[in-house]
């Protein structure tokens, strides 16, 4: 009488069947997604980041940091990236950045439009909220394994898994940003006879930009947080080095890769945070 009755809800069984059905019937669909992610990712990794000489990469990052933030961030980027290279973690770091950049691009392409829809439609907002909660709290291992079923091993499932985790902040903060645009400004726009599209593009999105950039910033941080987990499905890069270090009880090796992730995170955080602030003053 004290034990919970054995109802045996077969939720797990249903999920297994759903996964099997998806593998059997939507293979072509997954192949298209796989190619759509793999091609730009491999291009960014092999033909840009790893093709450019290391000092060119550092100069470009520093220039971007200087332009968007200030000379302090640029200096930080130069020293940080040089330090990573000096530890012998350059190639791993470029691979990790390639995964991250691809994930962030995909997340923004999907997240920002959905965020706009959420801001326009209360019903859609109510609908997406529990789904986003689930995406952010479901332990990543649960979807890492089916990701391998659908997308194979390596970089592509890593990007997919990262996006699942990193899209919610992009949607949430875009939604929030547009909703926070003051009603008076919107009213003023309307009284000048703007169309819905003009209102969105010329008034709401520019004013929401700081929030949207905060969303991109969060997306980047989420993506970096997934780096280690994604190495468990064979994604190369810094995460794999952390895992290798841990599996061999080689704490030093894990630390080197871990500190490299931290450096990349700090540089990207400072740059995107500055981008958000710039939006406010513009």
């Amino acid at each position: 009488m004290w034990d919970f009755p054995e109802l045996n809800f077969p939720i797990g069984e249903w999920v297994n069947r759903a996964v099997a059905w998806l593998t059997d019937n939507l293979e072509a669909f997954f192949d298209v997604i796989t190619t759509a992610i793999r091609e730009p990712l491999v291009w960014i990794k092999n033909d840009v980041l790893l093709w450019l000489p290391w000092w060119v990469v550092i100069i470009i990052v520093a220039a971007i940091a200087w332009k968007i933030a200030n000379w302090k961030v640029a200096l930080l980027a130069v020293l940080g990236l040089f330090f990573i290279g000096a530890m012998g973690r350059w190639d791993d770091t470029m691979t990790t950045i390639a995964i991250m950049v691809t994930s962030v691009i995909v997340s923004v392409i999907i997240g920002v439009p959905l965020g706009i829809i959420s801001a326009k439609s209360d019903r859609f907002e109510a609908f997406q909220r529990p789904i986003l909660d689930m995406m952010q709290t479901m332990p990543a291992f649960v979807y890492l394994v089916p990701a391998v079923f659908f997308f194979g091993l390596g970089l592509v499932p890593a990007v997919v898994a990262t996006c699942i985790y990193a899209i919610p902040p992009a949607i949430r903060l875009t939604n929030l940003g547009i909703r926070q645009v003051s009603p008076e400004v919107v009213e003023a726009g309307r009284s000048f006879g703007t169309t819905g599209m003009q209102l969105l593009l010329k008034i709401q999105l520019p004013l929401a930009l700081p929030n949207i950039m905060a969303g991109v910033n969060q997306t980047i941080m989420m993506a970096l947080a997934m780096v280690v987990l994604c190495s468990m499905i064979g994604a190369a890069g810094l995460g794999l080095e952390v895992l290798r270090g841990m599996n061999n009880l080689d704490v030093g090796r894990g630390f080197e890769a871990g500190i490299s992730i931290v450096i990349v995170a700090i540089i990207l955080d400072r740059i995107t945070a500055a981008l958000g602030k710039k939006g406010t003053t513009a």
Binding site: A20, T23, E27, F141, L144, V145, P146, V148, F149, F150, G152, L153, G154, S231, M232, I233, G234, A235, A236, L240, L243
Partner: peptide, 20 residues
Amino acid sequence: VMNAGSSTALFASLKGAYDA
């Protein structure tokens, strides 16, 4: 040669290919 990362991923990779 690609690392599977973990034994779970290795099994999933083989099982996924096998079923397909």
